[in-house]
Simulated scan of single mutants.
Amino acid sequence: MKIGNVELKNKVFLSPMAGVTDLPFRLICKEQNCGLLYTEMINAKALCYDDENTKKMLKIEEKEHPVAVQIFGSDPDFMGRAAEIMNDYSNEILDINMGCPAPKVIKNGDGSALMKNPKLVEQVLTSVVKNSKKPVTVKIRKGWDDENINAIEIAKIAEYCGISALAIHGRTREQYYSGKADWDIISQIKNNISIPVIGNGDVFEVEDAINMLDKTHCDAIMIGRGAQGNPWIFKRINHYMQTGEILPEATVEEKMNTAIKHLKLAVKEHGEYVAVREMRKHIAWYLKGLRHSAKVRDEINKIESCEEVIDKLNSYMQHSLTLE
Results as ranks from 00 to 15, higher is better:
Gly35Pro: 13
Gly35Thr: 10
Gly35Glu: 06
Gly35Lys: 09
Leu36Phe: 06
Leu36Glu: 11
Leu37Thr: 11
Tyr38Thr: 10
Tyr38Gln: 04
Tyr38Ile: 07
Thr39Met: 07
Glu40Val: 09
Met41Gly: 01
Ile42Ala: 02
Ile42Val: 15
Ile42Ser: 03
Ile42Lys: 03
Asn43Gly: 06
Asn43Phe: 02
Ala44Met: 03
Ala44Lys: 08
Lys45Thr: 10
Lys45Ser: 08
Ala46Ser: 15
Tyr49Lys: 12
Tyr49Cys: 11
Asp51His: 11
Asp51Arg: 12
Glu52Leu: 11
Glu52Gly: 00
Glu52Met: 06
Asn53Lys: 15
Thr54Asn: 07
Met57His: 12
Met57Lys: 15
Met57Ala: 12
Met57Asn: 12
Leu58Tyr: 09
Leu58Ile: 08
Leu58Ser: 01
Leu58Ala: 00
Ile60Glu: 04
Ile60Ser: 03
Glu61Tyr: 08
Glu61Met: 13
Glu62Arg: 14
Glu62Ala: 13
Lys63Gly: 02
Lys63Phe: 04
Glu64Arg: 12
Glu64Met: 07
Glu64Val: 11
Glu64Pro: 10
His65Met: 10
His65Asn: 13
His65Ala: 09
His65Thr: 12
Pro66His: 07
Pro66Asp: 07
Val67Glu: 00
Val67Leu: 03
Ala68Gln: 01
Ala68Trp: 09
Ala68Asn: 01
Val69Ile: 15
Gln70Thr: 03
Gln70Tyr: 02
Ile71Pro: 06
Ile71Trp: 01
Phe72Ile: 10
Gly73Tyr: 00
